[in-house]
Computed example of a mutant assay.
Amino acid sequence: MNTLTAEKLRVGAWHIDSNLGQMTRGTECVRLEPRMLRLLLCLADRAGQVVSAEELLEQVWPGVVVSADSVYQAIASLRRLLGDDPKQASYIVTVPRQGYRMVAEIGTWIAPDAVAPVLNSPKVNRRRLALLIGSSAAILVGAGLWWQNAPASHSSNGSTHAGRYQKSIAVLPFLDLTEYMKQEYFADGMTEELIGRLSKIPGVRVPAPTSSFYFKGKQLPVADIARQLDVNYILDGSVRTSGRTMRISARLVKADNAFVIWTETYDRPVDDLLKVQDDISENVTKALKAAIVH
């Protein structure tokens, strides 16, 4: 099967829709950037085979000059989206010094037939229908009571938000502001590295990468994001380059008033991107630890 031209594809437990640029698993829905989708399809097309970093560079980044670090970062980001553990991989296995191999089962995704509405069926059991209506009414009443007694949250209309945990922070995907977005996977890796480091601070709660990356590309008020993730702080940032210098900017925003309470800019050479990630994430974590943990 040529997965590169398939519109709907099943990769393990995920259903891939190439037209919509997204993948779903149960109630989960993850948006895939064009290159991320291309990377997934390339690996799926050669399922069971080892695909070298050079081959992936040619197929995923055609006509764009990028380093092998981009492949490493992209694979890490794709694993995160798939919920794959590199130590016990069920989707993508790293073959040392050779490349990567898709080990998940690949197949054609056949969407289930739509179920006709119950009310249109001539075989409706009236007793069951009455029970269904009664249950629905009970659920609605319960939801109304919960809503009336729920704590106030901040939304775009200006009401206040207060997360359940005072020391809680969400790291939003860093923006790639480089020309042609050549460092998108570095920015994603920077985000994931910060989530990992911040989550190790005692007493600080940090939403998982899957939750944070859900908001990638979405234009929402900081307070709305904080309310959905139930946090009191939001950390975001950006990546830019000039020649052989990379500039990483980061800022910390308080959710209840949307004020920036800390910001910093770091300039580093682009010789070793992984070293830059480690260096910046360590510096940012130290600064935020002082700002949040009192």
Rank of each mutant, 00 (worst) to 15 (best):
M1E: 10
L4A: 05
K8C: 02
L9A: 01
L20W: 10
G26C: 03
T27G: 00
E28P: 01
V30L: 02
L39C: 11
L43Q: 02
D45M: 04
D45R: 11
G48L: 11
Q49I: 01
S52R: 12
L56T: 00
L57V: 09
V64W: 10
I75T: 04
S77A: 15
R79F: 05
G83Q: 03
D84R: 13
A89E: 03
S90T: 09
Y100T: 00
T108P: 08
P112T: 08
P117F: 02
S121D: 09
S121P: 01
S121G: 10
V124E: 09
N125C: 09
R127W: 07
G134W: 09
A137G: 07
L140Q: 12
W146G: 06
S156M: 05
G158Q: 00
S159E: 15
T160S: 05
R164N: 07
T178Y: 02
E179S: 01
Y180P: 00
Q183W: 13
F186S: 00
T191Y: 10
R197Q: 06
S199H: 11
S199I: 13
G203D: 04
V204Y: 08
V206L: 01
P207Y: 06
F213W: 08
F215R: 04
L220K: 14
A223Y: 03
A226K: 12
A226F: 06
Y233T: 05
I234S: 00
S249M: 07
L252V: 09
N257F: 04
W262H: 15
T265S: 14
D271H: 06
D278G: 08
A287K: 09
L288G: 00
A291T: 07
I292V: 14
